[in-house]
Design a protein around this nucleic acid. Sequence first.
DNA 1: CTGCATCCCAAAGGATACTG
DNA 2: CAGTATCCTTTGGGATGCAG
Lengths: 146, 146
Amino acid sequence: MKNPLDQPTATIHTMRARLATPDPPPATDPKLDALVREIIERVADKWTMLVLEVLEEHGVVRFTRLGELVGGISQKMLTKTVRQMESDGLVKRTIHPVIPPKVEYELTNLGRSLGTAFCGVWIWAEEHHEEIDHARRTFRRDSEIA
Amino acid sequence: MKNPLDQPTATIHTMRARLATPDPPPATDPKLDALVREIIERVADKWTMLVLEVLEEHGVVRFTRLGELVGGISQKMLTKTVRQMESDGLVKRTIHPVIPPKVEYELTNLGRSLGTAFCGVWIWAEEHHEEIDHARRTFRRDSEIA
DNA sequence: CTGCATCCCAAAGGATACTG
DNA sequence: CAGTATCCTTTGGGATGCAG
């Protein structure tokens, strides 16, 4: 697909205006949009959200335990995800210089704030899982007809 | 540090307990959790969220235009993403039997409700992008020291 | 033992060409 | 225009190795 120019796409301004902020009109700032979009691309990730969930639930967790709690994640991806989250300031990593080694992970305030923001999606999933299930069945059935 | 969201771990379970029935639901249903988790894994996807955003902003959009508005997505992924969203009941796909072909995409009510739920994350990204940026710089700097 | 890096293979994703 | 098919690159996952 041709991608002549990164169309400024993301327009959070509309949604913000919709919600509460009676701020000045959305003089769309392309740089801000690009920035926000980049963050969404990073954060809208399956493993990131799952790790976030687990840390939110369990507080301070060690590496292996974190992997168990997330479930179905490879060490490699867990490392990568958790490093990225750390670099973005979502997670704090504490190394205890003991033998055997002990490294603990926990959310930062920033991480917790993301968890809160994303909480709405968990609730959405819980409230609408039946609709989704129904839609999937209908879609499959319609596809079979063809 | 204006962060009204700094509550101790808002999770789906604690939220449920908080909002819904005050007595019985501390017991977690593993099947429901698995179901909800599966939905999160599907939905917590970069392209899905970006397409959702675009459709929320622009209403009814044709295929090519949708790709342009999302930006940086290949035809393949756009097709795949939009098909998956359709099968999950988030998107309605309308084929107009004309030449040249015309296929229009728009959100369903379910899709719009997800958009609303995810809106909190966009706002979060906008409010905290500076913190993230700072965290990244700090992380890089600290890494360079080592 | 814990935690992370490496190797290797499978799967996801991008670019292009082509059809209805 | 809206895809599908094809080819090729990039990324993710399992297993292993290894340092602390």
